[in-house]
Design a protein around this nucleic acid. Sequence first.
DNA 1: TGCCACACTGACTGACCAGTCAATCGATCC
DNA 2: GGATCGATTGACTGGTCAGTCAGTGTGGCA
Lengths: 207, 207
Amino acid sequence: MTTAATDKRRVILDAAVRVFARQGFHTCRVSDIADEAGVAYGLVYHYFSSKEQILDTLFLERWDVMLAAIAEADESPRAPQDKLGAIAGFIIDSYRHDPDLMKVIIVEVTRAANTFGLTHLGKIRDAYAGIAAIVAGAQQEGRFRTDVTPEFAAQAFYGSVEQVLTGWIFDSTPVGEEELERAKTMIVQTICCGLELQSTGPGKKSA
Amino acid sequence: MTTAATDKRRVILDAAVRVFARQGFHTCRVSDIADEAGVAYGLVYHYFSSKEQILDTLFLERWDVMLAAIAEADESPRAPQDKLGAIAGFIIDSYRHDPDLMKVIIVEVTRAANTFGLTHLGKIRDAYAGIAAIVAGAQQEGRFRTDVTPEFAAQAFYGSVEQVLTGWIFDSTPVGEEELERAKTMIVQTICCGLELQSTGPGKKSA
DNA sequence: TGCCACACTGACTGACCAGTCAATCGATCC
DNA sequence: GGATCGATTGACTGGTCAGTCAGTGTGGCA
């Protein structure tokens, strides 16, 4: 059944990403999506039960992939720094691959505390929990400091990544490949090693 | 003129904060604001030219105070860590003082890349720039590492703070005083010192 | 006492738009 | 050829809501 039928569904979803990214979920009309997809208005309702369900579908499709990426990083035998690097890399690559989709997910779902945020709160929390698990593991191995809770560290880490993406989303000039790659290492550097210069020897600052 | 006239204006603004926080800007009706304020529908338009202008007013009122706090931190003679701590503290205290207002600002303005985000993009960027200036200063003094750009560090710092607030905003259980205070130090700890345990001696990881 | 200015009221309107549905198209099978 | 059924169409409806405006209090001032 992966014929014209499923194709049109996909066409509508892809059009919705572009329209949501351009105009925002609340501001756009369903007819905008239909027009963008080159499809009759009614067909949207043949494949989706509501405007909201389109956004839900887009979010879940992508978020489930991310949860898998987080789980995979956690299970890998790498150092915790590299696990976090893998997650940051995955998110940044997601942006590279489809900036519009990431914009929609971040702006319309992840940060929308009222409407959709609440619907998908569980899924969103799963992501934080996965990151927190990595931090907790690193603490137990004595590799990460224990005076910052894993939950807090997860928020700080994810927040940094999302904020960097938000910066790109808002930015009028497109982001270069180089900058994307550079961001990956800078995130890990900042969160794992901190901004302070490790004053090796003289003025030692204790926690 | 600071009589009943200005009072009603304030009453409407305060009511709007509660309504926006509860229902979201796009989902609420102007009549909801009027009802919450205990005021006739038309009076809202006596003081404000549009629903949007109410949100603008709320945002600008608070954001300008924050920009001042950032500038003040930058100009103070404290260590860069303490400057960042002062900013994190200010934002967290803002949340303590009026969680609804912070929710509205973060959810409806700061992260709304389409509608209001664009209007206030300049003001929002001013905040990042202020934080970046502190980091740049610390780098020039040789106190912060220079392989992370000030702009990036500012994003990471602000993103961490905002994400922690977002966590509280989403959370159903209210946040304790203790947790608010603890967050201040954990943010500075994380961003300045990093999550890694400073392995003093043995397994040294180079950047 | 009468007049003015302005705070205040809330019914109304005009526009907009999500979702419906009856009709058409076209592929496939008998 | 024609019966069946899902895909596709787009005009239409019902409800919602931002913003308007004509009118009513009310406090101050001459």
